[in-house]
């Protein structure tokens, strides 16, 4: 118990110290770019508790949920298929690496031209961004399944679907979850990016609009909201990971952070 408290204190002291420093250092600030933290928090309360939640926050999170869901499902399905067909996978590797290395937000103008400026193009681009980390990790995870286990599955003549869901995916789960958590971070980045171009709603749009109309405190309030949302999503995906891998003896303990990949 005492050790836990110490650990919590070690994690908490810096954020607390930083916020306190920010609060006092900015208290009498007259700079238009760095308004007092007190002003920012007042705007935060006015805007996000909970006036704009049904509009901007709901809009962003709906897109995020749909895009992430579609991207992850597609990544798992495609990952198993390519993981089980090494030859095709080897042939496709350069293409995959090229696609993965392309910053997904750069595709936004193309996606908008194809799907219009509505919700569809935002969901599509979030799904595209969320797809790659999970897909590549699933392929690797499936390929790394012990040949002995594969042989046993084959000997038992498991149907392909059974083999995939009962043998391949669980075996690859630890690596898949690493991909999923990266996908979540990437999806948040792309969600914001997708709202900076031709959008009329969303948290990203709100931040851009605040900056354009010199409402800098509002902009900071939006940034703080994004930070909190990102943190909450990271905790959520860590929880999901723990749940999914609870059976796994070698599952990672401790660290709940995951490095955000560039998008």
């Amino acid at each position: 118990m005492r050790r836990r408290l110490t650990a919590a204190a070690v994690e908490a002291w810096l954020p607390v110290a930083l916020v306190a420093t920010w609060w006092f250092a900015s208290a009498s600030s007259t700079s238009i770019y760095f308004p007092p933290l007190r002003t920012i928090l007042e705007r935060f309360q006015d805007l996000w508790l909970f006036e704009r939640v049904p509009t901007d926050v709901a809009f962003s999170l709906t897109n995020l949920g749909l895009g992430l869901g579609a991207g992850l499902v597609a990544a798992l399905a495609a990952g198993v298929v390519f993981g089980l067909t090494p030859r095709i996978h080897t042939a496709m590797t350069p293409v995959f690496e090229f696609m993965r290395a392309t910053p997904i937000v750069a595709l936004l103008p193309l996606i908008v031209a194809m799907f219009g400026l509505g919700v569809t193009s935002k969901v599509v681009i979030i799904a595209l961004g969320a797809f790659w980390p999970t897909f590549l990790n699933t392929v690797d995870g499936v390929r790394a399944v012990d040949p002995l286990v594969r042989d046993v599955a084959r000997t038992y003549r498991l149907r392909p679907v059974t083999s995939a869901t009962r043998v391949m995916l669980p075996n690859a789960a630890p690596q898949i979850m690493v991909g999923v958590r990266t996908s979540v971070s990437v999806a948040v980045v792309i969600m914001v990016g997708s709202e900076l171009f031709g959008s009329s709603e969303g948290i990203g749009y709100f931040i851009l609009q605040s900056q354009r109309s010199y409402a800098i405190a509002d902009m900071w309030a939006g940034l703080i909201l994004l930070g909190l949302l990102g943190y909450a999503l990271n905790l959520l995906s860590a929880g999901v990971e723990r749940l999914v891998l609870s059976w796994h003896e070698g599952r990672r303990t401790g660290s709940t952070t995951v490095a955000a990949a560039g998008a």
């Binding site: 070690v10 002291w13 930083l18 600030s29 303990t253 401790g254």
Partner: peptide, 29 residues
């Protein structure tokens, strides 16, 4: 794997904090 040691976490956090403060100092010019 074990948890990173408390000392390591402490200094890692200290480094991150110094970076943030340095960045803040750059603003407001």
């Amino acid at each position: 794997m074990t948890r990173p040691s408390v000392a390591r976490k402490f200094f890692g956090a200290l480094g991150a904090g110094a970076l943030v403060l340095a960045l803040a100092a750059c603003g407001g010019g």
